[in-house]
Simulated scan of single mutants.
Amino acid sequence: MVGQNRLELLLFGLETSQRYGINVFKVREVLQCPELTEVPRLTTSVKGMAHIRGETIPVLDLSEAIGRRAIPAEEQRKCFLIVAEYNRRTLAFLVRKVDRIFNTQWDQIMPPPAEIGSENYLTAVFELDGKLVEILDVEQILADLYPMATDVSEEVADKTVRAQAHEYHVLIVDDSAVARNQMQRSLESLGVKVTSANNGKQAWDLLRGMADKGVDVEKSFLMVISDIEMPEMDGYTLTAMIREDTRMQRMHVVLHTSLSGGFNVSMVKKVGADGFLAKFNPNDLASVVVNRISQVRESQ
């Protein structure tokens, strides 16, 4: 599916008839909920730990995490665990039911309506059988449960780099508001100027519009750092379109994703990206930008 703007979603349900979706590539396995081991915790939505295939994995009640009714302890064994990998962390989501795998196109996946505001856990929606399926912003959910630092270590960027950083401009592309904010805070702490786009289509429209006005896009941006999975246009397709346009085909593009797995490195090369970055570590992100600044300065 790489470069074809396609994805597969695992559909599941919580406490109502509303259906939700999660990218299949994030899912390691689905199983009946085993007996959980309770642990002292700061948040009640973490229900305990499950011992699965030699690993001890935290279990998150997804209903409670998004502000809905928690699944009672006596009903947990009737529910399912979706074991997934996000941002270098393996965890299991406790859900009421698992439906099926649905194959679709990213251009059929739409951002949530702006009218619902920003205080929600939705990252996208799509229509199936006359009803809306909601794709949850799991990164926002996890960020609320496990806040992450965005400070960049002095060892990654010294005073010399920080003094030069203000000369450079980075375009970041991500459908998750929390991911955009994390990246923006980290890069701005370096002194780099940042422009953000909510998905690949918005980024492409920006780049193409600048090029149509005669702007040298390759010189305007130090690099593009784009998420892979986004509504309307994914990062693979965005990269392929940049490479096909002679006005910007030499732009430095790094794809990043919360998807774990070794396949990512080879896949980003197939579409012509210059690198791959796993979400989210501020020092790793800063290192990619600092290295690119060094490359540019050495070539001048």
Rank of each mutant, 00 (worst) to 15 (best):
L7C: 15
L7R: 10
L7E: 09
L10Y: 09
L10G: 02
G13I: 08
G13C: 14
G13D: 13
Q18P: 10
Q18L: 12
I22N: 03
V24L: 15
R28D: 15
V30Q: 08
V30L: 12
E35N: 13
L36A: 12
T37D: 13
P40H: 05
P40G: 00
T44M: 09
S45Q: 10
H51Q: 07
I52M: 01
G54V: 09
E55T: 07
E55F: 08
T56C: 01
L60M: 15
L62F: 11
G67L: 14
R69N: 06
A73N: 13
E74N: 15
K78I: 08
V83Q: 10
A84H: 04
Y86Q: 05
A92Q: 01
A92W: 04
A92D: 02
F93R: 03
L94F: 02
R96I: 03
R100C: 09
I109K: 00
I109R: 00
M110C: 08
P113S: 04
P113V: 10
A114K: 10
E115P: 04
I116D: 04
S118Y: 08
E119T: 11
E119L: 13
N120I: 10
A124V: 12
V125C: 15
V125D: 11
E127P: 06
L128N: 05
K131C: 04
L132I: 13
L132R: 11
I135G: 00
I135M: 05
D137L: 07
E139Y: 05
E139R: 06
Q140Y: 08
I141F: 09
M148N: 08
T150G: 05
S153K: 03
V156C: 03
A157W: 00
K159T: 10
V161T: 11
V170R: 07
V173Q: 12
S176K: 08
V178Y: 06
Q182N: 10
Q182V: 10
M183H: 02
M183V: 03
M183W: 02
Q184C: 04
Q184K: 15
L187K: 12
E188A: 06
L190T: 13
L190S: 13
S196I: 04
S196P: 03
G200E: 07
G200Y: 08
K201H: 09
A203G: 04
A203W: 08
D205M: 10
L206C: 03
L207A: 01
R208S: 10
A211R: 09
G214Y: 05
V215S: 00
V215K: 06
E218H: 01
S220L: 06
F221G: 01
F221C: 02
V224N: 07
I225T: 14
D227E: 15
D227P: 14
I228Y: 06
E229V: 12
G235Y: 11
G235T: 07
T237Y: 07
L238H: 08
M241V: 03
R247F: 09
H252I: 07
H252N: 12
V253C: 03
L255M: 14
L255Y: 09
T257H: 01
S258H: 10
S258T: 15
S260R: 06
G261C: 11
V268F: 00
D274K: 09
D274N: 15
F276M: 11
K279H: 11
K279N: 13
N281A: 11
N281Y: 06
V289T: 14
V289M: 05
V290T: 13
N291P: 10
N291M: 03
N291D: 15
I293G: 01
I293S: 01
V296D: 02
V296K: 15
S299H: 13
Q300R: 14
